[in-house]
């Protein structure tokens, strides 16, 4: 059975829903976890993603984007919602927490290390870096998810990487590049 048939059946058929869920849960969870870097928050966001997806499943049409891209789009919106709410409700706490967090210089290859700097970027920049380098999506796939043109995405990614580079102190960056090479 094709993914299209499964998605159409998942609206009413519990076994089709099972298969769709198993196919996409882990990818969506990993993507959200990379964006929020907190398991509890990721669980909350992923719950919202799947509830919204199931509620809107009847509206999904196989026209321009595949189902997985549609799910990623919902996930990206939910992550933005989460940060928006957090900004509204807990700015002071977050600032203190960010200042206290010091990345381990001994593990420059860890995701935690780079996430410390990535989270200071705007959400769109974080998103494109995660989708391109950690989820390993092509520009075509990212364009389907975000609804942006490929050329625009290439330019955005280039700028996001420059910003990320500028956020990492020079000596730390040199040290990191040295360890990696």
């Amino acid at each position: 059975m094709t993914e299209k048939e499964l998605v159409m059946r998942a609206k009413k058929d519990i076994s089709a829903f099972d298969q769709i869920y198993e196919m996409h849960f882990q990818k969506i969870f990993r993507y959200v976890l990379m964006r929020v870097n907190n398991r509890d928050v990721a669980e909350e966001v992923v719950s919202n993603v799947f509830y919204k997806a199931m509620n809107k499943l009847h509206m999904f049409r196989w026209r321009s984007i595949p189902f997985s891209a549609w799910l990623y789009r919902i996930a990206a919106n939910e992550i933005s919602n989460y940060y928006r709410k957090r900004k509204r409700g807990g700015v002071i706490v977050d600032k203190v927490r960010v200042e206290l967090e010091i990345p381990s210089e001994e593990e420059p290859m860890s995701y935690d290390f780079i996430h410390h700097y990535m989270k200071q970027l705007p959400h769109n920049d974080q998103d494109i870096i995660v989708l391109r380098y950690f989820e390993k999506f092509s520009f075509t796939q990212i364009a389907e998810m975000t609804g942006k043109k490929e050329n625009t995405l290439r330019v955005n990614l280039h700028r996001a990487l420059k910003k990320l580079e500028s956020l990492i102190p020079g000596e730390v960056l040199d040290d990191v590049y040295e360890k990696v090479s």
Partner: peptide
């Protein structure tokens, strides 16, 4: 070394399906 190569060399975090996956389903 460029930032691109550095990011490509970082291993993405694992997210094994735990009890949360079962509970949500």
């Amino acid at each position: 070394m460029s930032m691109r190569k550095y990011l490509e060399s970082i291993k993405a975090p694992e997210a094994p399906p735990g009890p949360f996956s079962v509970r949500l389903k």
